[in-house]
């Protein structure tokens, strides 16, 4: 695959996968974009990382990335966790692409279970890592049956799950992997993002690609696709609300992580999107715990 004359500076083909594999994945992506929300099977490869660490997302990223792309990888919103750092390093090594932690500077964002707080643009691609692509899996274990249900749009069962939630908890207690209907046709699992992020899926200017490596499925939301979260007329879809702003940057209306501070019940809420939080602090925003915990939080990072 490499130029026989010039000695390659990396033993890997560009972005690790061989060209035929990338073509195969691109064909699956094109099909997925053509049928929004439909799960396209693809010949998922073994990747040099365990299943569950984002093998699907990595393959999708490898298929769409070019030498001029700038890659950002987030894991639960953070750029600095093992998974995010490793995947960034993987592409820095195998594709020699520039990486960044800044949302607005990235052209490809691979994400594990969050959508960045900052609105995305038409020049960006969001790649989701998906553990279980089939939204009906835990309701109907037979793959043959779920395929027929998708084909015939038999989605009553999805509401059975929501009914169960309300019957047991008094409200829809599904907080992540909240099922959505794409363009009034396919019911799709938006990967385990918090339902807080569901409203960001609809009409997004960015292309959204979903890769499930173990389950060998790719699906997609083309830009400006209508995505509705399923609900009942008398129990409409709602996102999580937080009782206090981010402790570090004072942001409201963003998704927050709870951080346990001590064993006496002390806790704080901080932005799950670490880049967004840092950006706000650079702009001079300060949360009520920023001064007291600045040292501790940096030590923790």
């Amino acid at each position: 695959m490499s130029d026989p004359v010039q000695k390659p500076d990396t033993p890997y083909n560009f972005a690790y996968l061989d060209e035929q594999t990338k073509r195969m994945i691109r064909r699956a992506i094109l099909k997925a974009v053509a049928i929004p929300g439909y799960q396209v099977p693809f010949a998922s490869r073994e990747m040099p990382m365990p299943y569950g660490w984002g093998t699907g997302g990595v393959q999708v990223t490898a298929a769409v990335i070019g030498p001029d792309d700038v890659l950002k990888v987030i894991d639960q919103g953070a750029d600095d966790t093992t998974n995010a750092v490793s995947i960034r390093a993987f592409f820095a090594k195998t594709a020699r692409v520039a990486t960044t932690t800044r949302t607005e500077a990235a052209t490809i964002i691979q994400t594990r279970h969050r959508v960045p707080e900052m609105p995305l643009t038409e020049s960006q691609i969001l790649v989701y890592q998906v553990p279980i692509p089939e939204p009906l899996r835990f309701l109907e274990p037979r793959e043959t049956e779920t395929r027929v249900m998708h084909a015939l749009q038999e989605y009553g069962l999805m509401h059975v799950k929501l009914y169960e939630d309300i019957a047991r908890h008094g409200h829809i207690a599904t907080t992540y992997a909240y099922p959505v209907k794409v363009e009034g046709r396919y019911v799709m699992d938006p990967s385990p993002i918090p339902k807080f992020d569901n409203p960001k899926l609809t009409n997004s200017p960015a292309l959204q690609l979903f890769g499930a490596g173990r389950e060998k499925r790719i699906y997609a939301l083309p830009p400006f696709t209508k995505v509705e979260s399923l609900d009942f007329e008398d129990h409409p879809f709602e996102v999580q609300r937080f009782c206090e702003p981010c402790g570090l940057c004072g942001a409201t209306g963003v998704y927050l992580d709870e951080v346990i501070l001590d064993d006496k019940g002390g806790r704080m809420f901080v932005c799950s999107d670490s880049d967004y939080c840092e950006g706000r602090r650079e702009e001079g925003h300060r949360g009520h715990l920023a001064g007291a915990l600045a040292g501790a939080a940096e030590a923790g990072e």
Binding site: E154, G156, L157, H159, V160, Y163, I166, A167, D234, H235
Partner: peptide
């Protein structure tokens, strides 16, 4: 029956399958 969901959801499943979307009425 669907043994993993409650009795009420079992009875309501067909209603939801034909498009009823009002929890109170289904229940």
């Amino acid at each position: 029956l669907r043994m993993n969901v409650s009795a009420g959801a079992n009875v309501g499943e067909r209603l939801m399958a034909v498009g009823q979307r009002h929890y109170g009425q289904i229940r």
